[in-house]
Each structure stands twice: as C-alpha cells, then as structure tokens.
Design a protein around this nucleic acid. Sequence first.
DNA 1: CTATAAGGAATGAAGATTCATTCCGCAGGA
DNA 2: TCCTGCGGAATGAATCTTCATTCCTTATAG
Lengths: 200, 200
Amino acid sequence: MDKTDKCEKAEKCCDKRELIIQAALELVAEQGFHGAPMAMIAEKAGVGAGTIYRYFENKDDLIRWIYKNVEERFVEVMMQGYPENGAVRERLLHIGTALVRHLIREPLQLRFVEQFHNSPYGVDHRREKLFSEGRKDVISDLFQEALQQQIFKPLELAILFSLFFGPLVDICRDHILGFIKLDDALIEQVVGACWDALRR
Amino acid sequence: MDKTDKCEKAEKCCDKRELIIQAALELVAEQGFHGAPMAMIAEKAGVGAGTIYRYFENKDDLIRWIYKNVEERFVEVMMQGYPENGAVRERLLHIGTALVRHLIREPLQLRFVEQFHNSPYGVDHRREKLFSEGRKDVISDLFQEALQQQIFKPLELAILFSLFFGPLVDICRDHILGFIKLDDALIEQVVGACWDALRR
DNA sequence: CTATAAGGAATGAAGATTCATTCCGCAGGA
DNA sequence: TCCTGCGGAATGAATCTTCATTCCTTATAG
C-alpha cells in the first residue's frame, strides 16, 4: 500500500520521494499554495515534472500526505516525555511547551499547516473533525479530567482548546517572523499565561 | 481621488461599485481566493467582467480595498461606546466583547480577513505592520498603561495581543462554523478568561 | 534485450486582463 | 417636440498566462 514499501534497499527511488516532499513543504510554507506549482516543486526537488506523478496520484494526494505526516509529528512530539502520572497542570504545561518548542524548531511545518487550514483542503478537514466527535485522544482526556476535577472554568472543550492553543500558535508565528524572540524562560511564562486563562 | 466622489446624485454608478465589493467579499469569505475568479465576482454582482476594471485597477486593488475597509470597521466597532474613563479592566472587556459581537454578526468579514492574512497579501501586510512600529492607537495605549500599572504580566505587547485576541478570533470562527454556540453570557465568560491570561 | 524509472515537452483547462464595440442619456439645433 | 451626434459607461468575447496532468522518449538496471 505505502509506496515506499517496495523500496527495500533504500535507494535513489526513496530519495526522490523525500526530495519531492521536502520541496513541496518548503514552497507551500514559504509562498503558500499560490506559489507552489508542480513545475516549481519538481525543479526545487531536482526531478522532472512527470516524476512526481510516479510517487503521488496528483497534487491533492501529495499535499494531504504531507499534512497527515506533519500533524502526526505534532502529536508525537507532545506525547514524548509526557508525565502520565503528573498533576493536570504539569501534564498540560508539558504539552504546551513541547508544542511550542517543536513549532519554532520546525517553522516550515507550522507555516504549512496554517496554509493548509486556510485553503479548500482545510474546510474538508475541519468538517471531518466535526463528525468524528468522540475521538479519544490523550489531550481531550486531559481536558475532560480537568473539567471533572473542577480545575478548569466550566466551558466547552472547543473553547478551552482555543484559549490554550490559540495564543501558543500565534506566538510561534510571531517568533518565526522575527516579531518576538522566544527563549525557554519566555515559553514557560507564555504557557503559564495560557493555563491562567483555563483555570477557575 | 475617491471614485465615488464624482457621483453626487447617488445613482446606479455607485450601486455597481458596491455590488462588486459585496460579491467579492462573499465569494472570498465563503470559497477563499481560489474560489473567487473575477468572472464569478462579475456574475454574482450582475455586471460584465470588464466593468470591474472601471472601478478597480486590478484584482489586487479590489481585494486590498475591501480589506482596508473591513479592518477600519473593526476598529470603529471596538471604539464605539468605549469607556474612556473606566478602569483598565472595564475598557479591555469592552473592546473584547465589542469585537466578538461584531465578528459573529458579520461572519463574512471575519472569514475574509482570515483568508487575506493567509495569502500572499497577508505577508506584505504583516511586513508593513512590523515597520510602522510606534503607531499610537488606543488599544496599544491601553495595553501600555496596564503594563505600567503592573496590572499585566510583564510581557511584550505582541504576546499580550496574542493572548487576548488570539482565542477570541478562534472562538468566533468556531461559532460561525457551528462548532459552538455563543451567547452574551458566554462571550462575557470567554473575554473574562482572556483577561485572566493577561493579568498578573 | 526487456522492463521499469525518469524526464520534460505538449496539452488543455482555467483564469486575469484587454479592447473593440454597443448602449444610453442628454445637449443643442431645427 | 423631434432628431442627431457626442461622450462616458458597460460589455463580454478574445487574448495571454499560468498550471496540473499526460504521454511519448530516453536512460538504466537486471
């Protein structure tokens, strides 16, 4: 199923795939979808225009594939070193700081995801999320737990998410664009401020 | 200078301009820039494709003009009934609730602005803002005052803005998309939560 | 020598912009 | 009052680009 499977010896064929992905990620992140025509992706990747279609069915397929992987990466990073048994506050601060650290280390990933969300793709994607309501991921569980323990203000999950993640993403963007300069101490402060918005 | 000036009797010529603006605003807000070709804008406005170019130099000009007006409208609304002499908290809560109320009443304007920010236009726009650093608007002044009185956490203005406005905009989008249902009481609570993020 | 990968010019669809033409209201002459 | 000619407004088909995608050719590996 996965097209990389057939490439057991990890030869040039896999390189090409990676080159294409990296080129597309960079172009979309830096220029938006307008500035990322297939021909340019091919050139940046150093392959022929037609070659892309050996690895991806079409442009949609390429874009969605990149998005899926980037999003998975985000979750992965937030779960790395997650203090399963810590207090609610400790766990949430871990998630927040891990996310911010990752986003400013991988600015292209943040910019790509933002481009994706504000595009025809993003509409479909949000719709999907609306339907798959009761998904049981660690983060939702954490918020639910905090609600039950009356640690958080009694607000809907969607609102709590916005209060916590909204500013974090904005601030990472400002950092990437050179508007502000985040360091570890500042990240702590900001994540702490977001916590204050949530707690009773 | 302003093309409407010559139209003293408020006749059809002015209508056309407005029709074009409204059509473009709706299409961009609902479908993004991808889904708003000039031909479609013209059709929706009920004018010929070439007619748009009698009122606007090109598509950029049209889009930027709409953006500028929408943004001015935002400031206008936030300043309406602004309690000049109230406490910092009262003034900020006024701004927050006024903004949210406006955004959910005019969903097209919010969606348009978001599309604009995440497009080639948005990059230029942000760059401009970076250069025009010391602009003295009421909102910046308010935040500065709060910093001086040590009411706020000692953070940069850009960060404080993100903490306050970031979630508000996110939440309005969720409301518009039907994810949550905002009412007056809930708006108060949310704006209050944003305040909590700012205060020491 | 065959089969598979890669290349990139060719294709056709879609969209922004232009421009030759039509339309419309009116001023002025009969 | 009724023409007639003028000028600005409006039109939309034609043009010029840009792009995703295809497909035939060439290179390479087995």
